[in-house]
Amino acid sequence: MSPDDTQEQTVQGFVTVTTAGQLFGLGLDRVRDVFVPQGLSAVPLAPPEVAGLLNLRGRIVTALDLRRRLGLPPRDSGKPMIAVGIEDRGELYGLIADRAGDVLWLKASSFENNPVNLDPRWAQVCAGVYRLDGDIMVVLDIDKVLDFSQFGAAAA
């Protein structure tokens, strides 16, 4: 929480990533770090959204594939990827995307609710959109992205 509420209403910081050509923003306050996932080991029998586990400075991080979570086609193997580190209830997660972007500070005035015709799978995890110059940034609701009860559904 920002100590100054009025400021928060006007400008909010986002870590941005690109996946399958789409720009996504994650609230700066929830992001721990951004890193290149290495040494990912698969977890058999896990939901498809779980890309694997990795060791980040001695802690185990559960990597979640944003493409899978959104029902997008899988990434071609060998293509670069990055992970956004998120700490949730004492556990570390890494949300895997294609590319990292800049940190953006955006005004509330350019915010809009989810378009009504947004794919229901997206609508589930998106908190709205920001109009940028020549682009649109989809805001990811991190709590909803990490809602495991919805896992496995996107693959269906």
Partner: peptide, 16 residues
């Protein structure tokens, strides 16, 4: 195990 993996009963934990 992270909570997303708790239901995967075949494993009791993980290690480095």
């Amino acid at each position: 195990l992270s909570s997303v993996l708790r239901h995967v009963t075949m494993f009791s934990g993980n290690t480095i």
